[in-house]
């Protein structure tokens, strides 16, 4: 969901406004951040960042000043929070925000792959693996994340099959998928080339039964082909069970044949990118 720019909140404690008690300042900031607002305290120096609407909060004692951006670029509103309980300030700010749309924490999670290019070898395995066209290739033949919104929340399957541990999901619970430093001794260096048709057309459940035998250490538990397969299956099943997508969209999810076709296309794109890469290096 593309929503920008944000509403930024400035807590003003300068001339004409009272200084907030530290406990109140903390409580107000935490509640605003937890609603998705960026917050800064004015009167402490530093430089404000940004664009978009600015909401200035302060204990103005009933005399909130009228402010406007001298450059005429930003909408600025002031809000007197004198006497407003800590826990109610965010509600007041929400009302002031009006029709400006924001992603709501708790209702949406920023879940998408982040590529560590210091590790990525541009092997294109992620492009071949992902069923949802999250990945693409730049004009220079480099793998990149092109469709964040296509990524299925809580599915880190592509990360598990990356042979270089180059794909992170920062919101994931465990490492190295969450961005923890990669233990080189634990990296299975052999390329884990996943046959996408075997994954979806083969005997999925016998593979899953083998998983516990294959997982010998933390690293292999976190990333192996059979777990990636389970993740993929789980994602699709969950989407269906939870009703996150309508029936007609469910029906349009790739069939094994479609997956074969997509895999063929992805392989062709990957090959072209790799050839371009090879040509550039020659």
């Amino acid at each position: 969901m593309a929503i920008a720019p944000h509403v930024q909140v400035l807590i003003y404690e300068g001339s004409g406004a009272a200084e907030l008690a530290p406990a109140r300042r903390f409580a107000v900031m935490a509640s605003l951040l937890d609603r998705g607002y960026a917050v800064r305290v004015a009167g402490r120096g530093g430089r404000g960042v940004g664009e978009g609407a600015l909401l200035v909060l302060g204990e103005f004692g009933g005399n909130a000043p009228l402010l406007e951006d001298a450059a005429g670029e930003r909408a600025i509103a002031t809000l007197d929070i004198s006497g407003v309980e800590d826990g109610k300030v965010a509600d007041v700010v929400d009302r002031q925000r009006g029709e400006r749309v924001m992603n709501q924490p708790g209702m949406w999670k920023p879940w998408f792959p982040v590529i560590d290019y210091s590790r990525c070898t541009n092997c294109m395995q992620c492009l071949s693996f992902c069923l949802f066209d999250v990945y693409g290739v730049s004009g220079e033949g480099k793998i990149q994340v092109q469709n964040n919104d296509n990524c299925k929340t809580n599915c880190p399957a592509c990360s598990r099959v990356c042979p270089e541990v180059a794909i992170m999901f920062p919101k994931y619970s465990g490492g190295p998928i969450n961005g923890e430093p990669v233990s080189e001794s634990g990296v299975q260096r052999q390329a884990m080339k996943v046959d996408i048709s075997a994954l979806l057309g083969g005997d999925i459940y016998s593979r899953l039964r083998q998983r516990s035998d294959e997982a010998k250490d933390r690293f292999s538990r976190e990333r192996d082909a059979s777990k990636a397969l389970a993740e993929r299956k789980k994602c699709l099943t969950k989407l269906a069970a939870d009703g996150f997508i309508p029936a007609d969209v469910l029906a349009s999810l790739p069939s094994p044949e479609e997956i074969q076709r997509k895999a063929g296309e992805a392989a062709a794109r990957a090959k072209a990118a790799l050839e371009m890469q090879g040509g550039a290096e020659a």
């Binding site: 944000h6 903390f26 998705g36 404000g48």
Partner: peptide, 30 residues
Amino acid sequence: LEHLSAGGRAFEAVADLCEMSAQRDGRLVE
């Protein structure tokens, strides 16, 4: 956050860097 908000030093607090990255928020450039 309690430590920062009690101190006198300037700081910027953002709701979530992942969300900002997903939106390619211009503040990250700044």
